[in-house]
Amino acid sequence: MQKKEQESKNQTKDSTYIQQHLANERTFLAWVSTSITIIGVGFLITNLHFATLTTPHVDLGDMLAKLIGLSSIIVGIITLIFTTFSYFKKGEEINQQTFRFTRITIILLTILMTLIFIVFGAYYLIIWALI
């Protein structure tokens, strides 16, 4: 009986909801991976543009390639910052049993990624028009 009392005294609020906290951590790590991928795609597109460009020099294509690279870095950093704040907020909400899923992070990142994809599309239209 005394052992059970000792265990309950050592139990923290976090350990009460350990499954939820572990799921929150896995979600955080998935977002970190996503942010690294977003940044990597920007580097890839920019490097491929300047390394394999066989068409005549096009200022608009160069500008769009640079814009894709820079915007991917910015969106990747924003993703990392938002997910870090979200991770800690969700941890507190899990412990207080007041968890609510976040809409703003998903909406903001969807808008930012859509803008990058629009620039991707413009870039490819310009490059293909020159081929």
Rank of each mutant, 00 (worst) to 15 (best):
Q2G: 01
E5D: 07
E7V: 05
S8D: 06
S8Q: 08
S8I: 09
N10G: 01
N10V: 06
N10S: 10
Q11G: 00
T12H: 03
D14E: 09
D14L: 12
Y17P: 00
I18S: 10
Q20G: 00
Q20M: 08
Q20D: 04
H21M: 05
A23T: 08
A23Y: 11
E25Y: 09
T27M: 08
T27P: 01
F28Q: 02
F28Y: 14
F28L: 13
W31Q: 02
S33G: 15
T34G: 14
T37R: 04
V41T: 13
F43V: 10
N47A: 11
H49E: 09
H49R: 08
H49C: 08
H49N: 14
A51L: 12
L53F: 11
L53Q: 15
L53K: 11
T54Y: 08
T54C: 04
T55K: 12
H57A: 09
V58I: 10
L60Q: 13
D62H: 14
M63F: 12
M63N: 08
L64F: 15
A65Y: 02
A65H: 00
K66N: 03
L67I: 10
I73G: 09
I73H: 07
I74V: 14
I74H: 01
V75W: 07
V75G: 06
V75R: 00
G76K: 01
G76W: 09
I77M: 14
L80V: 01
F82M: 15
F85C: 08
Y87K: 11
E93M: 15
N95Q: 09
N95M: 04
Q96L: 06
T105Y: 06
I106T: 04
L108K: 02
L112Y: 05
M113C: 11
M113L: 14
L115E: 09
L115P: 00
L115R: 01
I116P: 01
I118P: 01
I118E: 06
V119M: 13
F120W: 13
F120R: 00
W128Y: 07
A129N: 13
L130H: 08
I131G: 15
I131N: 14
